[in-house]
Amino acid sequence: MLMTPECVAPTGCALGEGPVWSPSEGFLWWVDIKRAKLHRYNPRTGNTRRYDLPIRASALALHDGCLLMAGDQEIGLYDPATEGYERWCTLSGEPETNRTNDGGVAPDGSFWFGTMDDKEREATGSYFRLGADRQVSPVRLPSVMVTNTMQFSPDGRTFYTCDSAEQEILAFDHDSETGTLTGRRVFATTYEFGGFPDGSTIDSEGCLWTCLWDASRVVRFLPDGTVDQVVTLAAPRPTSCTFGGPDMRTLFITTARAGLSFPVLDSRPLSGSLFAVTVDVPGLPPREFGKG
């Protein structure tokens, strides 16, 4: 089934990413990595607001009324009410050309995130876990070019991730007690769509919704990896998605303008906007950092 979302915030982000729904506020938060901006969308009024950030944040998570941020080579906490930022920790041993990319909260409340070569030339990206004690530990997975998709199944037993450059989405068995990953396997490929898997989200039926960079699509994969639904966008580079709204049936989709030629931007002027579409199966309430 094909679905076409509408543009709800024509923000023109260079690289919109990291959408997070805040149920207590009724806001959708996301970032523009390249411009070091934070965006907020209020679906009740249609209004948006933009904040300047001290880092190029790439991934967000809710925490005590604030936003946990991964950006550049550090993790910190941002309070939109005061526009204050507190650095929690920095990454050690990462190449100078690396920066953080996607991230997500695990069932135990820890924050999993990845790094990547900002120039997308070398496979130097790694995976990390931030615990409730604010300590960062490595997740033992092979180095990748572009780390994306940090999602866990509703029961917490499966972890999904991808190296966007490989056009494959991977699945691992996840031990919720130890955080150990085993049973690496290819969950789905995106060759047939001509796109590259980017950010994802999980719905209440355990299906994975994945944005396909350069394919103008978001695809819903069933737990067995088969394609169930396809969302077609008026922007070629969807980057990430999440569920929100009072009933969690609104799929919000961030997009990018970065790297598009002027002719493409002329034909796809909504590139970099925030899109939304109503779906039948609701998403899951967002997990908060530190709350297992």
Rank of each mutant, 00 (worst) to 15 (best):
P263C: 08
C13T: 11
P154V: 10
D133Y: 15
P54Y: 06
T239Q: 01
M248D: 10
W29Q: 10
Y160M: 12
Q229M: 03
D32E: 04
R49Q: 14
V105Q: 01
M3L: 15
V279W: 01
E166C: 08
R185K: 09
G46K: 10
V230M: 09
A215C: 08
S92V: 08
L38Y: 11
W21P: 00
I55H: 02
G18T: 04
P285L: 14
E192Y: 05
M69E: 01
Y41W: 14
F275C: 12
C7G: 02
V8L: 09
G183L: 12
G114F: 08
L2W: 10
Q135C: 13
W112L: 10
R121Q: 15
T82Q: 14
V136W: 02
E86A: 13
L260T: 08
P286N: 14
G16T: 05
L212V: 08
R49E: 12
Y85K: 08
G71R: 02
Y127G: 00
F187N: 03
E168C: 05
S92Y: 10
P95H: 15
S92G: 14
D32V: 04
S126H: 12
G283I: 03
V31N: 05
I169L: 11
M3C: 13
A215Y: 01
G272T: 13
W213S: 00
W21G: 03
E168F: 02
A14K: 07
V230D: 09
A59H: 10
A215L: 03
D102K: 00
E192T: 07
T82R: 14
G283R: 00
M248W: 14
F128Y: 13
